[in-house]
Nucleic acid binder design. Structure first.
Length: 358
DNA sequence: AAGTCGGGGGC
DNA sequence: GCCCCAGACTT
């Protein structure tokens, strides 16, 4: 049962937003569907302060959906390097081409269903784009809104559970007004991000502290319940650092889906034997160095222990599709896996062997 | 309903 | 170290 009527909730929230909300985020200027869309995709599972420089670079290079649709995937992923969840970048590129080909270059912002059919746009993101770029009533349910609602209503259970998520959608639907939807959706996210934050919520300044069920019980820190934790396995890999006489490094294109999909990486092998056999076949004249100090790269669901293995060749004939020689001193506009980018940055142009990993 | 998909921030 | 962040998609 909602603790407030829709209009009461919206009125209190908007009064707070006018005084304390965020009004100067880059995507709040010139709120076109395109700019709102790009920002919403970048902001999925990613904090605002991380997104801002990526958003600015992206807009400078791709000012509109047509320019994005015409770009190469390599260049799109280049601007995504370091942001993570690269399927977002691939889907963004794909969706731009769908908008150009099937929607005459304009986002279908009058249809929630049509928006949610575009790659990378789910129910909440579709609602956010529609609400923010057109002012039409649309409901959102992102992490901020979930936190606000689970506390306000003391909703038990991890919000990732479908049953809990259904309840939260109902609450979000109940509280979303018909007027000032642009500000309302932004206000919900601002409240969750700046005041009803995870760590130390500033309850005394909250416009709902008198009705919040979590606050009433003094248990605001218990909501939302955290995700059940699982043990993260450790995987190991060898990364071949094969350099030619010009100091260039051999890179391999990752498969288009899956981990680091569509990015360029160093050739990876499960063990030294596999790496050795690959060199025997493709670069028998290569001088093989000793493995460097390993380092660990952490993902959400596993840790990857990376052992760089240097090797050198004088020259190799042209490489086939899916391979390239990359000059770390004059980088190409391609997407690189984060630890690969770091490794390449540590390479000295004057030495054959790289230093220990980052 | 659970697993996959990143990298960084905050504590 | 840990948990989480303006989620979507696959199985």
């Amino acid at each position: 049962m909602p603790v407030l009527e829709r209009e009461t909730f919206a009125s209190r929230l908007l009064t707070w937003y006018d005084q304390h909300g965020r009004h100067d985020l880059p995507w709040q200027q010139d709120r076109t569907p395109y700019r709102v869309w790009v920002s919403e995709i970048m902001l999925q599972q990613t904090q605002v302060t991380t997104v801002i420089p990526y958003f600015e670079r992206f807009m400078a290079r791709f000012p509109d959906v047509a320019s994005l649709a015409e770009a190469s995937q390599d260049e799109v992923l280049h601007l995504w390097t370091g942001l993570g969840y690269y399927a977002r970048g691939r889907n963004l590129h794909k969706a731009a081409q769908v908008v150009m080909a099937e929607h005459d270059g304009r986002f279908p912002v009058d249809s929630l269903e049509a928006m949610a059919q575009l790659p990378g746009i789910g129910r909440s993101t579709a609602g956010a784009i529609i609400a923010q770029s057109t002012g039409q009533r649309a409901v959102i349910l992102d992490g901020n809104v979930k936190r606000v609602l689970t506390r306000l209503q003391a909703v038990e259970g991890w919000p990732g559970r479908p049953a809990v998520e259904r309840e939260l959608w109902q609450l979000a639907e109940h509280y979303t007004p018909h007027d000032r939807v642009v500000d309302f959706t932004q206000a919900m996210m601002d409240l969750g991000a700046t005041l009803c934050r995870r760590g130390q919520p500033d309850c005394p300044r909250c416009p709902f502290h008198d009705v919040c069920l979590a606050h009433a019980s003094g248990e605001q820190r218990r909501f939302p319940e955290s995700k059940p934790k699982k043990t993260t396995p450790l995987r190991t890999t060898r990364m071949l650092l094969l350099r030619d006489a010009g100091g260039r490094v051999l890179l391999e294109l990752r498969p288009s889906t899956g981990l680091w999909g569509g990015l360029w990486s160093l050739p990876q092998f499960d063990n030294d034997q596999d790496l050795g056999r690959w060199l025997d076949e493709h670069a028998p004249a290569a001088e093989r160095g000793t493995p460097q100090t390993s380092f660990t790269h952490v993902f959400s669901h596993f840790r990857l222990e990376i052992t760089p293995v240097p090797a050198s060749v004088e020259h190799m004939d042209s490489v086939s599709e899916g391979w390239r020689w990359y000059d770390p001193q004059t980088p190409d506009s391609v997407g690189l896996a984060a630890p690969v980018k770091k490794l390449l940055q540590t390479l000295s142009p004057f030495t054959l062997s790289p230093p220990a990993g980052p």
